[in-house]
Simulated scan of single mutants.
Amino acid sequence: MKEIADLLKASSYTTIMTGAGMSTESGLPDFRSQQGLWQKYDPVKMASTEAMRSNRSAFVSFYQKRIEALQSVSPNDGHILLSEWERNGLVQQIITQNVDNLHQEAGSRLVSELHGSLAALRCDECGKKEDTSRYVRAEIKCPSCSGLLRPDIVLFGEILPSRALEDAEKAALQSDLFIVMGTSLTVAPASYFPQDAKQNGASLVIINESETELDYLADYLFTGHSISETIRLINAHL
Rank of each mutant, 00 (worst) to 15 (best):
residue 5 A to I: 02
residue 11 S to E: 09
residue 13 Y to E: 02
residue 14 T to P: 02
residue 15 T to Y: 05
residue 17 M to N: 00
residue 18 T to D: 03
residue 19 G to I: 07
residue 19 G to M: 06
residue 20 A to Q: 04
residue 23 S to C: 13
residue 30 D to T: 11
residue 35 Q to M: 13
residue 36 G to F: 11
residue 43 P to L: 12
residue 50 E to C: 00
residue 52 M to I: 02
residue 54 S to R: 14
residue 55 N to H: 14
residue 57 S to P: 00
residue 57 S to R: 14
residue 62 F to N: 03
residue 64 Q to L: 11
residue 64 Q to A: 08
residue 72 S to H: 14
residue 73 V to W: 09
residue 75 P to F: 01
residue 83 S to H: 03
residue 87 R to P: 00
residue 89 G to C: 09
residue 91 V to L: 05
residue 93 Q to N: 13
residue 94 I to E: 00
residue 94 I to Y: 05
residue 95 I to L: 12
residue 97 Q to V: 05
residue 98 N to I: 09
residue 99 V to Y: 01
residue 101 N to W: 09
residue 103 H to R: 04
residue 104 Q to Y: 04
residue 109 R to F: 08
residue 117 S to E: 05
residue 119 A to L: 00
residue 125 E to Y: 10
residue 125 E to G: 04
residue 128 K to G: 08
residue 128 K to I: 14
residue 133 S to F: 10
residue 138 A to K: 15
residue 144 S to W: 06
residue 145 C to G: 05
residue 151 P to Y: 02
residue 158 E to D: 01
residue 159 I to P: 07
residue 159 I to A: 15
residue 165 L to Y: 14
residue 167 D to F: 06
residue 169 E to C: 09
residue 170 K to I: 10
residue 171 A to Q: 01
residue 174 Q to F: 03
residue 176 D to C: 11
residue 176 D to I: 06
residue 178 F to A: 01
residue 179 I to F: 09
residue 179 I to R: 02
residue 180 V to N: 05
residue 189 P to K: 09
residue 198 K to D: 09
residue 198 K to W: 11
residue 199 Q to S: 15
residue 203 S to P: 00
residue 205 V to L: 03
residue 206 I to Y: 02
residue 208 N to V: 11
residue 211 E to W: 02
residue 214 L to P: 07
residue 220 Y to L: 12
residue 221 L to K: 14
residue 224 G to C: 09
residue 225 H to A: 14
residue 226 S to W: 12
residue 226 S to M: 02
residue 227 I to M: 03
residue 234 I to W: 06
